[in-house]
Computed example of a mutant assay.
Amino acid sequence: MPKVKNIIGKREFRTLLFLIIFFVLIGAVNVDFLSLGNIHSSLKSSLLYIVLAIGMTFVLLTGNIDISIGGILGLSAAVSGTILRDGGSVITAVIVAILIGALIGLINGFGVTKLNISSFIMTLGMLGITRVVQVIYTDGQWVENLPISFKRISQVDFLGVNLLVLIVIAGLICTHLYLAYSRKGRYFAAIGDNEEGAIFLGIPVTRYKNYAFIISGVCASLAGLIFVSQIGFISTNAGAGIEMTVIAAAVLGGVSLSGGVGSVIGASIGAIIMTSINSALVYVKVPAFWNDAISGSLLIIIVVSDALLTRRAERRAKKERLNARVLRKEVPDNAVFK
C-alpha cells in the first residue's frame, strides 16, 4: 500500500492521469479520437517533442534553461538536409548534425559556467545566432528534393509499430534509468536542488552543467533529423517557437523550473499532451488559430502551478526542519530510553 501511495503521489502519475482524462474527454466529443490509428499517429507526431523534452530535462534539472533548441533543430536539419540532397550518406548527415548540436551546447555551457551569463540570456542569444547562420547557409532558400529513401525511414514499421517510436522509447527508458538509478545520473538533480551542497560533496558541478547543455544540443540535432525525415523539407523558420512548447511539456510532466525535480518520463508524457492538443482541436472542430492561445494559456497555468508547488514544498521542508530542532531540544542530553 505505501508503494501504491508513493506512485500516486508522483508528478508523472498525475500527468499520465491528465493525459488519459484528456483523451477520454475529447473521445466523448468525437469517438474517432480514441481510435488506435489516431493514438499511433499522435505518438509519431510527438516523437520530435519527446526527444527535445529529454534534452531539456537535463538542463532544467540543473536549474538552468535552454531556449536555443529551436535554432539548433533548424540549423542541424538544414545542414544534414543539404548533405543528403547533394548525395552524401546518411551516416555523414547524422554525424554532422550531432556535432553541430554538441558544439552549440558546449558554447552554451561555456557561457553559463565560465562567463557566468544567465542561461536564459545565453541560449536566447544563441537562438538568434543559429537562425541567422541557417539563413546564410541556405541563402534564404528552403532545403527540398531530399532522397525518398531517407523520408521513408519515419514510415518503417516493426511488428505493427513505427520503428522510430520504438527507438525513441528505448532511448527514453535508458535515459530514465541513468538519471534515476545511477550515481552520476543523479548529479544533475543534485546540482539543481542544492548547488553549494553539491560542490561540498565533491560533485563536478561545472562539468555536469556543460554535459547538460551538450546533451540538450545533441537531442535538438537528433530532433532535427526526425524533422527532416517526417516533413521532407526544411524551411528557413523550421523549429521556430518550438522551445516554448517543449518547456511547457517538461514542466507539465513534473520537471521543476527551479531545478532538482523531475524525470524524462514525465517530460515525455507532457510532450505527448502538448502535441495531442493540436490534433484534438481538429477533432472537436476548433479553428487552428486557437492553438497558440491554448498553448500559451496552458504554459502560464503550468508555470504558476509549478511555482506554487515549489513554494509549498519549501514551506513543508522548513516546517520539518523546525519540528526536528524543537524535538531535539525537548529531549534531555542524559535521557535514557528503555
Score class of each variant (00 low, 15 high):
321 R>T: 13
179 L>T: 00
38 N>L: 09
267 A>Q: 03
64 N>I: 03
163 L>Y: 12
171 G>A: 05
139 D>W: 07
141 Q>V: 10
180 A>M: 13
212 A>G: 10
88 G>V: 04
262 G>E: 01
222 L>A: 05
21 I>R: 07
171 G>S: 03
126 M>K: 06
316 R>D: 14
164 L>T: 04
315 R>T: 04
5 K>M: 14
299 L>A: 09
182 S>R: 13
18 F>M: 13
185 G>M: 07
91 I>L: 12
198 A>L: 12
246 V>P: 02
235 S>L: 07
30 N>F: 06
110 F>C: 09
277 I>S: 06
325 R>I: 11
36 L>C: 01
199 I>K: 15
54 I>G: 00
97 A>M: 07
211 Y>A: 12
106 L>N: 05
155 Q>L: 15
160 G>V: 05
28 A>P: 02
257 L>I: 14
157 D>F: 15
65 I>C: 06
17 L>N: 04
235 S>C: 01
281 L>T: 02
129 I>Y: 00
51 V>A: 05
158 F>H: 05
317 A>I: 04
37 G>W: 03
112 V>I: 15
132 V>C: 06
41 S>D: 12
115 L>S: 03
112 V>C: 13
190 A>H: 03
79 V>I: 12
221 S>P: 04
87 G>L: 10
177 L>P: 01
62 T>I: 10
53 A>I: 04
290 W>H: 11
70 G>H: 06
6 N>Q: 15
248 A>V: 02
85 R>H: 11
329 K>R: 15
328 R>Q: 12
48 L>C: 07
149 S>Y: 11
31 V>M: 10
336 V>K: 08
325 R>S: 13
204 P>M: 11
269 I>G: 02
314 E>C: 01
194 N>C: 10
266 G>F: 04
221 S>T: 02
288 A>K: 10
22 F>K: 05
209 K>G: 09
80 S>Q: 08
66 D>Y: 04
290 W>R: 06
82 T>H: 13
295 S>Y: 02
274 M>W: 06
220 A>S: 13
81 G>Q: 04
114 K>Y: 08
99 L>T: 04
129 I>H: 00
278 N>R: 13
263 S>C: 01
136 I>F: 11
158 F>E: 01
286 V>A: 07
240 A>Y: 10
229 S>K: 12
24 V>P: 03
327 L>F: 14
237 N>Q: 14
288 A>E: 13
45 S>W: 09
146 L>N: 08
311 R>A: 14
236 T>V: 11
334 N>Q: 11
75 L>D: 02
315 R>I: 06
215 I>W: 00
161 V>L: 14
90 V>A: 12
9 G>T: 06
284 V>M: 15
234 I>Y: 06
264 V>Q: 00
231 I>E: 08
304 V>F: 15
250 A>P: 07
248 A>K: 01
230 Q>L: 13
195 E>V: 13
48 L>S: 07
276 S>L: 02
75 L>F: 11
207 R>D: 03
299 L>I: 08
258 S>P: 05
103 L>D: 02
50 I>C: 15
43 L>Q: 08
194 N>K: 10
141 Q>W: 13
